[in-house]
């Protein structure tokens, strides 16, 4: 395994949890898979389709997202929305994210001094 692969592997691990958090926050307004993929990547939360689609399915199974098929348009699409449980999880994750960010900030400034 060369350095690029190692880096890619660690980046993927680091981002895994943040994609969950981003989905839960973003889906407070309902949306379907492809639109969510586009908007997250536009925001700079990099995630590929192979990760996102299975993730949505898993979050729904865990009761963190609810879904509804929208058949108003010519093509049926599954719209996901963050459930109340999902909201609670999003809050918990966000709190922890901020705590880790502060801790890392403390670590790096400690290094420099």
């Amino acid at each position: 395994m060369n350095l690029d692969e190692t880096t890619a592997g660690h980046l993927q691990e680091l981002r895994r949890g943040t994609v969950v958090l981003a989905c839960l926050v973003r889906l407070r307004t309902p949306d379907y898979g492809y639109a969510l993929l586009e908007s997250l990547n536009t925001l700079g939360i990099l995630v590929d389709a192979n990760t996102l689609y299975p993730l949505l399915r898993r979050l729904e199974k865990q009761g963190l997202l609810t879904s509804e098929w929208n058949t108003d348009e010519a093509r049926p699409r599954k719209f996901y929305r963050t459930s109340p449980t999902g909201e609670l999880l999003a809050d918990a994750l966000m709190t922890d994210w901020r705590r880790i960010d502060d801790a890392l900030a403390g670590l790096t400034t400690g290094d420099e001094s």
């Binding site: 379907y32 898979g33 492809y34 389709a49 689609y53 399915r57 098929w69 093509r75 049926p76 699409r77 599954k78």
Partner: peptide, 16 residues
């Protein structure tokens, strides 16, 4: 359910 989701994903990808 899986088939419908996958169809939607493929169609959206084709369109994109």
């Amino acid at each position: 359910e899986f088939a419908r989701e996958l169809e939607e994903r493929i169609r959206d990808d084709i369109d994109a």
